[in-house]
Nucleic acid binder design. Structure first.
Length: 431
RNA sequence: GUGCCUGUGGUUCAAUGGUAGAACUCCGCUCUGUGGCAGCGGCGACACGGGUUCGAUUCCCGUCAGGCACCCCA
């Protein structure tokens, strides 16, 4: 690289997706489309820019996302816009704005695209990341939809050959029962202040549910006798949770109830879940990898946005993390080998004729590659090989003179000579 | 935002207070009549800025970036 006088570097936390990785992304996108079709989710695309207020009210003013993770822009007119940090609020906005409640309910939509959070990057955590989401909005508040979004997320992961997946499910109750549980939790921790870390002491006032998330040794100890939210669920939430588990059982989903799944966004209620992949560490023990996705029910989001109360549930998956896992586990994503045709020319006359011939192929809708800048036959065959061509067409001086061309099967090396004017038809037959 | 570790060609790694070597990749030639080989040749790097020094890629500081942990999550 020549001497540079500025940083030729992607912005912190962003990354390029290079040509050699595109097939993995393309595969994931393809599977997203297929899973969406099977489970009848329609695609929705919302803008990358939204008003700041949408997330303040939707995700919640006191959440990390809103407090410190948003890229906020100010327009010339003084409006506050943000690069969207998540998709659910935006989908809810679109649902309200376009009166989508007048389509048949529930509305099932999916989206896929870039999202932005201002955080310190590390493996699997980016400032610009790609997420795919499935949302079920409106209709009955039925646990079957909770399980359906889990199912869609799970099937998507399975479709790219991810193994040892587990869904950790919990219920965090509703407006009625969650405050009761918080009270119980706090009274349990009241005389344990000395036994927990300073972060947890902070959590006691700020976000008590997060106490359950801490991984400090002493806090793990302290957690052991902590009350379980399941015991405090109101009868409606309890019934809903039971329904979720029954459906999950019926579908034989690889799930486990995990009372420590809490999730940090305000809009969640009742069902919450996260999907992990279990990996085997070097010492042979099973470890839980990073969360590949998560989601839950958000029955109160619409109210927070000042809209008519609407039941809804969704799941999101991190596409970058999926790609990272595929790469680090060396999961083999088969590339569909198109029958590529490669044109080889020898000599100036053949080059001229070759250009003409290529146009004929293009007109016939056949993709054809070449490396006509090279001269030697060997070099061109090498290029054909690298390009993964299955057939090579060899046009030399002799052939130009005889108005014929050689078709070479790159795998077997079998060659045959056909008339130049018949070659397009002949190739069409073969691919 | 905090703490710790790291930064040498495209990639993986060396060496060194006197400005750097290799392997793979890439390009070219042998090769205008038959490909994955071989032989030969070539392009290409000390992240950036400052300090110490006669001299810094090497030591020190800062910046940037990456990784790990916290926080949180996708």
């Amino acid at each position: 690289m020549p001497k540079k006088n500025f940083d030729l570097q992607a912005v912190k936390g962003t990354h390029d997706i290079l040509p050699q990785d595109q097939f993995i992304w393309e595969k994931i996108r393809k599977e997203i489309r297929e899973v969406a079709e099977i489970y009848s989710f329609s695609r929705i695309d919302t803008p990358i820019l939204e008003n700041l207020d949408l997330f303040k009210r939707g995700v919640g003013e006191a959440t990390d996302i809103v407090e410190k993770q948003m890229f906020v822009l100010t327009t010339k007119g003084g409006d506050k816009l943000v690069l969207r940090p998540e998709g659910t609020s935006a989908v809810a906005r679109a649902y309200a704005q376009h009166g989508l409640s007048h389509l048949s309910q529930p509305l099932k939509v999916y989206y896929e695209g870039p999202f932005f959070r201002y955080e310190n990057p590390q493996a699997g955590r980016y400032r610009q990341f790609h997420q795919v989401g499935f949302e079920v909005i409106g209709g009955e508040n039925d646990p079957i939809y909770d399980v359906q979004v889990m199912l869609a997320a799970l099937r998507l992961l399975e479709s790219v050959k991810l193994k040892n997946l587990t869904i950790h499910i919990n219920s965090i109750g509703c407006k009625v029962c969650r405050p009761i549980y918080k009270k119980h939790l706090l009274s349990y921790y009241k005389n344990k202040k000395k036994d927990i870390c300073k972060d947890c002491n902070r959590r006691m006032t700020q976000n008590p549910l997060r106490l359950l998330d801490c991984k400090e040794d002493k806090c793990e100890q302290a957690k052991k006798g902590a009350p379980n939210i399941i015991d405090d669920l109101c009868s409606v939430c309890r019934k809903h949770f039971k329904g979720v588990l029954e459906y999950a059982e019926e579908l034989k989903l690889p799930y486990q109830v995990d009372p420590f799944i809490v999730r940090g966004l305000d809009y969640y209620s009742r069902t919450v879940f996260e999907i992990f992949m279990e990996e085997t560490s070097q010492s042979g023990e099973k470890i839980t990898g990073p969360a590949l996705g998560g989601g839950g029910r958000y029955d109160f989001l619409f109210e927070s946005l000042g809209l008519k109360s609407t039941s809804a549930v969704g799941a999101g998956l991190g596409m970058d993390r999926i790609v990272d896992v595929i790469k680090s586990n060396k999961i083999n994503i088969p590339v569909k080998q198109k029958n590529k045709v490669f044109l080889i020319v020898i000599g100036i006359e053949a080059k001229k004729k070759g250009l003409e011939l290529m146009e004929e192929f293009i007109e016939a809708g056949i993709n054809i590659s070449e490396s006509m800048g090279k001269n030697s036959l060997g070099a061109q065959l090498g290029s054909a090989d690298k390009a993964g061509a299955s057939l090579a067409l060899i046009l030399g001086q002799k052939e130009v003179f005889k108005e014929s061309i050689i078709i070479r099967d790159m795998k077997t090396g079998v060659q045959e000579t056909v008339l130049l004017k018949k070659v397009v038809a002949e190739i069409k037959k073969r691919i």
